[in-house]
Design a protein around this nucleic acid. Structure first.
Lengths: 222, 222, 222, 222
DNA sequence: AATGAATGAGGCTTCATTCAT
DNA sequence: GATGAATGAAGCCTCATTCAT
């Protein structure tokens, strides 16, 4: 029954989804929906909570606990991309619908996102500790990096899910989708983690022309 | 009058926003809204078009045309962050509401986003040409990087706008917000551009353990 | 519920009738009307179909099947006048409202009217065959006669229904109304059928002054 | 300006016609309409009065004053059919729209109709006096006959105007339309007047089987 | 445990009508 | 004399929600 709600909310949005439609899709009658979940608002909240928990669980389960930080991050990202690819409606509800429906709901999805950001933040800190980090990374800077990384991941998730239209077989084998997730995660790691590594040894990108030591520009390398 | 629509749509979403509310906020009567903008759909489209054009104009105006690619990107990002900070409702309408309201609207904002992604893609390509790029970056990979970068920027925009709650004065001086935008842009450049530089000289991040040359991990530096 | 719609549509017309009014008259709430009949248009169509069928049924039931043509016509007319007198709103919906509301509706009532006209046309033809009809009546002429007869009947129905204002008792006995219908039908038969009889033997009315044989004027009788 | 109102009311009906549309069709601005005709209701009344007067004038002008009664009736009918054919919107406003819009308007057109019915009633009476009328026609019976005749004429007007679709040239010559009107009038005279002539000499149609003297049936002629 | 039947409230849209210019 | 600009009122329709069974 909640499944039907997930699908309906994901496809139509909170306001446009009608309880009628959800009940019909679930194959039950409308009052039954009200018997278990007492209002549209509560139903949506339940949907958000369940899907958020599922997403966090998927990511958490994918992380290899005792690996180095970068490997942990990569595996977590792989889990994230695999989950969003396998459950597009779940991801759409969280990412597109819940965040846009004002306060009762945006808060819940923000909490979930904070959890993921916190996880990433921890990994960045761990990486800094793992390496004999010469640079001091301000907590605020780390938080910014984590947010950027999560945002990049979200953007890639959408991009990766929409694009493959000329797919080979109807339902690509799970192996394919797992591989695709891994590739997307690797792209992101390539993009982000390397730069973070330079950051940790004190390199900084700066806007200016003339620059001091540690100045790094794309085309100026030793 | 369109301003009122921007605010209302941004805060409540397309469906939840009522023409009554927009008219009241604009200080006019409901039929007047219909006299100028002929339906809720047209009104929302007009809002999207106006705000998308304004955002693109702000970014475009901020870019320093003849600077190196990284400097161009940074200045564009600065313009982006400055705009989203100065016009949060405009950004919310585009990023949160328009994208989630199905086809007539999602298409318009997707076009705008494609324009920005294209701009970033061009810069990455230019950077690759500026440097004596040893590595061949597949077009698809570049596109992925651009999407990731734009996504990271969007995420940072949200993060940067929400956070400063214990702010000092009511309206921080424009200098402050400009500086904040520059700092956020620099954070993103640090995060992304450096890594891209490594990428271009052929370094790759890989999930595995021991690997061949070009292998790069966070803790393995020269 | 449809009864209420009949009354409301008959008295106010399609456009001026409000679903609110119909619902109130029916003693139910507005959404209930939409639950069963899904729009104003469908409701009006349903009304037209039901009332048209009822009218045709009443006329058909009144006709004595195996009687001579004139007797059949008379009995049908009697049924018609009795029905319109007993159900003035039903008649008003069909005759006044449905015909004036453009295409979806005018068509349905036109079909019903065509059925009645066809019935009359058939009777005229039968009468021509019953009598050793010397004159050839062109099909087009017969159709004109039938239209004239039906139009006369419609006009008389309105006239007969409006007039009796100084009526004796509140609800005149059914016997009275039946008798009135019979009288009205006889008036129409007197008016029309006799002339048709002359027509069939070749008499023609002509506008001119002196004329050849077969010329018939009001004051020239054998 | 009133012309535009006639057209608009005729084509859309009273409720569906908008003052906006009338003003636009008339080429003037909406407040001007209100300056001269103070409300939609008054405008419609003015339309009805003008068109009703025009119709009566057309019929009156067509009647040949000193001719015999039947000739007068025929010429009046010819004028009627010619007018309705030449001014279908005018006729539609009177016959279809005004009668269906409840009391302020139905009354006005009823008055006009009463005038025509009265004219016909007078002619029937005159005919009765012209002929050495043996039969006494009750006033009520005469009124019924007049109503039947007018109704038949109205029905024929509609029928005659709608039908000629396979017409020869685009705008048939006036001569053609005049001739068509005369033919339609003759059809009606054939249908009605002859029967009335029999009526005046005491023949009656009766429903029964066995009948007394003066009994007339379609198939029983000398 | 489950539902057919019903409704209060609210949203989009239109239109007759006015007023300042 | 003529109009651009503006609005109060009302209508169609939908939906979240409840109750009697």
């Amino acid at each position: 029954m909640v499944d039907a709600a997930v699908i309906t909310f994901a496809r139509h949005g909170y306001r446009a989804a009608s309880i009628d439609g959800i009940a019909e899709l679930a194959g039950v009658s409308k009052p039954l929906v009200y018997l278990y979940l007492h209002s549209k608002e509560e139903l949506f909240s339940a949907v958000i909570r369940r899907e958020a928990a599922a997403l966090v669980a998927a990511v958490t389960a994918a992380v290899e606990p005792h690996a180095p930080a970068d490997r942990q991050l990569w595996s977590g990202l792989t889990g994230f991309f695999a989950y969003t690819a396998a459950h597009p409606d779940s991801w759409a509800v969280l990412h597109q619908q819940a965040r846009t429906q004002g306060e009762p709901f945006a808060h819940e999805v923000a909490a979930m996102r904070a959890e993921l950001v916190g996880f990433v933040t921890g990994l960045i800190g761990a990486a800094a500790r793992e390496s004999d980090c010469a640079a001091e990374l301000a907590a605020r800077e780390v938080a910014g990096l984590a947010h950027a990384l999560v945002g990049a991941a979200e953007s890639l998730a959408e991009w990766a899910n929409v694009r493959p239209e000329g797919g080979s077989s109807d339902k690509s084998a799970p192996a394919d989708s797992r591989e695709a997730a891994e590739r997307t995660a690797a792209t992101l790691m390539n993009f982000a983690w390397t730069g973070m590594g330079r950051l940790m040894v004190g390199e900084r990108w700066g806007p200016g022309g003339a620059e001091g030591p540690g100045r790094h520009q794309l085309d100026s390398r030793t």
